[in-house]
Computed example of a mutant assay.
Amino acid sequence: MTDRPTSPWPVPLPQGEKPPIPSLSVWPTGQTDPATQLREAGCVPGTETDTDLIPPAIAAYAIATYTRPGDLVVDPDCGAGTVLAEALHAGRRAFGLTARSRWWTLARANIAAAKASGAWRDGAVLDARPQMLATIRAVGLVGRVGLVLTALRTAPDDLGERTASPDRDPAAVINELVATLAYCEPLLGSGGHLVLVARPRRHPDGCLVDLTTPLIAAGTSAGLAPVDRCIALTAGLRGSRLVNRASLADRRAARVRAAGAGTPVTFTAHHEVLVFQAANGAELAAVAGIPRRIRMVHARTAFVDRPTRTSARRAVACVSAGPAADVRRISSGRWR
């Protein structure tokens, strides 16, 4: 078993095109340790200092599952740029933003390293906040994005703040996330997905924090519809057991918590993955009766652009007709 998804796909595709990977509820993305993943992905030294980064294996799995070659992958808060690098390696276009200068330098270096290794060359990162996606500068992205893939970031903005407080205020993090998702929602093309990855957190008493409820509420507030919830393993699979890959710092912290609580504390072995679509797109697919796992292929084949809400009836008719429908009659945009 490897970190990379390899699975057959039952829907006929054009000759020479690789099929997307049907999503699983548990992703086997922990077969190698984080340091090995970064090294195999060609990431530059220092990338590991981004504690909220999406591990390369998880990014690669999400990209292979929810996009097709040539699609545009966007990370509105890209950190050190692991998502962007993996998108380029997978033959997708990549675009990211970060307002933190230290992450921008690393993300730019990782993009350059990916291009130098022969990956797809259409990738860029801007020194900007997610709010830029709501300005005229991002108008060319509206309805063109196949996948928004980003992480829940709770680490402080600067190293000085990190020593005083390991995590930011949860309410502020969620409010910021709602705004970011709202900026991203208009960018999704037809059949596009927004995937949110969250590293598990614990309360002071050692209990896991419920991240799923507030994150789904944040996506719903931004006009998105949750379509899937997955578990991305950060532990290896050895037959019927998990091989934990907790760092030395994590092990020490667990021992401290266990001593304080008087009960054993288990290591986390996964990342939470929540998958969303634009509410109108998810509703159209449901009305058309397309099974979730082949919904993306039908939608991508049926549309060349994201349909407007006023064209809902024509879109449903086209999706019901299947891939052979005349896409130009129902598209809200044009080929570019």
Rank of each mutant, 00 (worst) to 15 (best):
P8E: 08
P8W: 02
P8S: 09
W9P: 00
V11M: 08
V11Q: 04
V11Y: 08
P12N: 11
P12I: 13
P12C: 10
Q15W: 03
Q15Y: 02
Q15F: 05
G16C: 06
E17R: 13
E17N: 01
K18A: 15
P19M: 04
P20R: 10
P20I: 10
I21H: 11
I21M: 09
I21N: 04
I21R: 14
P22M: 10
L24Y: 01
S25R: 14
V26A: 09
V26L: 11
W27P: 01
W27C: 03
W27K: 10
W27V: 11
P28W: 05
T29L: 05
G30R: 08
Q31V: 06
T32A: 06
P34H: 12
A35K: 11
A35P: 00
T36V: 12
T36W: 01
L38K: 06
L38F: 12
A41N: 05
A41I: 01
G42K: 01
C43T: 09
C43L: 15
V44K: 14
P45F: 14
P45K: 14
P45M: 13
G46V: 07
T47R: 13
T47Q: 13
E48L: 11
T49E: 11
T49P: 00
D50K: 11
T51E: 14
T51S: 11
T51G: 11
D52F: 00
D52N: 10
L53I: 07
L53H: 14
I54A: 05
P55G: 05
P56D: 09
P56W: 07
A57G: 09
A57M: 10
A60P: 00
A60N: 06
Y61S: 05
Y61E: 07
A62L: 05
A62K: 03
I63M: 04
A64C: 02
A64V: 01
A64S: 10
T65S: 08
T67V: 03
T67A: 02
R68P: 00
R68F: 07
P69C: 13
P69E: 15
G70A: 14
G70P: 13
D71E: 15
D71N: 15
L72S: 04
L72T: 13
V73E: 08
V74Q: 01
V74C: 03
D75G: 03
D75A: 03
P76I: 07
D77Q: 08
C78W: 02
C78G: 02
C78P: 01
G79Y: 09
G79M: 05
G79D: 06
G79I: 03
G81L: 04
T82I: 01
V83M: 01
L84P: 08
L84I: 13
A85H: 04
A87T: 12
L88E: 06
L88F: 07
L88H: 08
L88A: 09
H89W: 15
H89N: 07
G91D: 15
R93C: 09
A94I: 00
A94K: 00
F95K: 10
L97C: 06
L97F: 12
A99S: 15
A99E: 15
R100V: 15
S101F: 07
S101W: 12
S101V: 12
W104V: 09
L106R: 07
L106K: 01
L106F: 02
L106T: 12
A107V: 01
A107N: 00
R108F: 00
A109V: 04
A109L: 12
